[in-house]
Simulated assay, not measured.
Amino acid sequence: MSLSKSSEIKLRDMKVPEDYEQLTSLLNMIDPGSTTAQSIEEEDRQIPTVSNLKMNEDGLLAGFGRTRVVAEDDKGQIIGYGASFRAPWVEPGNLGSVFCVHPDFRRKGIGGKILAHLENWANEHHASVLSSIVMDWIDDSLPFVQNRGFVVDAHIFDLELDLNQFNNAKYGDTVEQVIQSGIQLTTLADLTRVETETELYELCVETAKDNPGQYSSLPPFEQWRKEFLPEANSRKEWVFLAIDGDRLIGVSQLFSTEDEGVLYTNYTGILKEYRGRGIAKALKLRSIEAAMKAGAHTLTTDSEEKNAPMQLINRSLGYIPGKGHYRILKKLRK
Rank of each mutant, 00 (worst) to 15 (best):
R315M: 12
W121G: 02
T36E: 05
L26F: 00
G276I: 06
E176R: 14
T196H: 06
S131W: 01
G250V: 07
G63H: 07
E231N: 09
L27W: 12
V251S: 09
L317Q: 08
L254E: 10
L218T: 08
R66Y: 14
V134T: 02
G324W: 08
V129G: 00
I133G: 02
P220Y: 10
L218C: 10
E197V: 14
P143N: 01
A282N: 11
S7H: 07
Q214L: 04
F221T: 13
P103M: 05
H155D: 01
G93H: 13
K226M: 12
D158N: 08
I133Y: 07
N168S: 13
D58L: 03
D302T: 09
G65R: 03
P220D: 13
N314H: 14
N211C: 15
R277S: 06
Q180D: 04
T257K: 07
A87I: 04
Q180P: 01
G250W: 11
K75A: 08
I243P: 03
S84G: 14
Q38I: 01
K226Y: 10
V70G: 03
L142N: 01
V152H: 00
P88T: 10
V90C: 07
S303H: 09
I179Q: 13
T67V: 14
G318Y: 04
R315Q: 15
G59T: 02
N52E: 08
N314L: 15
Q177K: 11
K75M: 05
A294I: 10
L118P: 04
F228V: 11
C100M: 14
R235M: 11
A242Q: 07
A308S: 12
G269T: 01
A232G: 00
V129K: 08
S217R: 03
Q311C: 15
G63W: 06
L254P: 09
S181V: 04
P103W: 07
N168P: 02
S97F: 05
Q177N: 11
A308C: 05
T301I: 11
D19S: 13
I288C: 11
K272Y: 01
S141Q: 00
G269P: 02
G63F: 08
A290R: 15
T174W: 05
M292H: 02
I156C: 06
E195A: 10
F105N: 02
H126C: 00
L263R: 14
E202K: 12
Y81D: 01
S216K: 02
T198P: 00
Y171S: 03
I270A: 03
D13M: 05
Y171M: 02
H102I: 10
N147G: 09
S303I: 15
L203N: 06
E124T: 00
D259V: 15
L285R: 12
Q38E: 13
V98E: 15
L161C: 13
